[in-house]
Design a protein around this nucleic acid. Structure first.
Lengths: 201, 201
DNA sequence: TCATTTATTGAACGCTGTTCAGTTTATATA
DNA sequence: TATATAAACTGAACAGCGTTCAATAAATGA
């Protein structure tokens, strides 16, 4: 029942986002509640609704940050122009990233907007930015630089990898070890690329 | 606050399961609440807890039913012994199934047990049963009938397909049409199989 | 007929997202 | 400087959630 000047709007926004990230890292989606975030920054839950439309928006921003992190990590892989080598390196960077950020990575796919709510454009751009890294690594395989099958293959690999990691993580694949997950991911990439080469060359 | 003899335990169980399925079909996971299911069968929420340990168990049983349905549908595909042909047919059956049962299919992957809770064995068996259909179709590609890479490839295809359909469904792939989803799925299968053939033969 | 077991319920607990009247403070204006 | 306006913030409230449980009533066994 007061107005405080501890933090201005931007500071508060940053505080809330950091709190949300911290919670997501430690407790995942289930801990990401308005009252939880608010308590962590010393404000009431209602205050969050001055900064964000709703909780979904907060989750979306956390996820956008994760996509950016992933983009930066994958961006560190220096492309050699040899797709097989480059994709392998991207894959390892991807697996390392999700190994070290498993709760954030889960949130990326566990959080869903209500039915019929489209993803905002600024969020879609984050996805496209990651996909473009894959496209760049795959491009040398195709005759033209922006062959439609290049975009398609980037999406196949991205979503397939997601499926493998998600089901393996949820223990829904009748597999045993973390090594098995890596083996699945590598088999996907190796065979898919070998298939591309065989069919195109 | 009474005892009723409208239904015995088994009938009640069946009623609750059917109600849960109906709700899942129409409203997905978000509509699958104890009070919702109870209202639909004319009992109170507490009664459900005589039949099931908790809501998760109900969701698990709905999902087991969906896996059985999927298994039956895929089982209708007559295997020719030609992996490419057979896998293509299985893929089409799979895509048809999830096209006609999208909410049930989503529940299969949206619902998660609390952290650290293992899937019960009877549920894992349902997954294994579906995977074995894929293994049977892939088997002719490998020298021995139960080559380890055959099991592995079945898991790669199953989880990759899941990833493609899930991300496409959530509109997280920057794709446009349902046809694009089919194209991704077919690209996965075609290239993966071509790769297997190239590497093994 | 009476005791025991079983089925069922409604109320309750502690959560959830979200809204909002009410209050306090900062800022702009006169 | 005094006053009006705007902005920030809170606590309580609402309707919902999963789950538990004392109380009740009916069915069953003795």
């Amino acid at each position: 029942m007061a107005r405080r000047s501890d933090h201005n709007r931007e500071e508060l926004y940053a505080l809330a986002m950091q709190a949300a990230r911290d919670i997501a890292v430690h407790d995942g989606l289930k801990g990401l509640t308005a009252r939880n975030i608010a308590k962590r920054i010393g404000y009431s839950a209602g205050t969050l609704y001055n900064l964000f439309k709703n909780l979904d928006e907060i989750a979306l921003h956390v996820n956008a940050g994760t996509l950016d992190q992933l983009h930066d990590r994958l961006g560190e892989v220096a492309l050699s122009g040899k797709p097989k080598k480059d994709i392998r390196q991207l894959l390892d960077a991807y697996l390392d990233f999700i190994g070290g950020n498993d709760r954030l990575w889960s949130l990326l796919f566990d959080h869903k907007l209500p039915d019929g709510t489209p993803l905002p454009d600024w969020y879609r751009a984050r996805i496209a930015r990651v996909l473009s890294l894959l496209e760049a690594a795959l491009a040398p395989l195709f005759p033209e630089p922006d062959h439609p099958e290049c975009q398609l293959s980037a999406r196949v690999l991205w979503s397939s990898l997601h499926g493998i990691c998600q089901l393996a993580n949820a223990d829904k694949l009748e597999i045993v070890s973390d090594e098995d997950t890596r083996a699945l991911a590598h088999a996907l990439v190796e065979n898919y690329l070998a298939g591309l080469k065989a069919r195109l060359g």
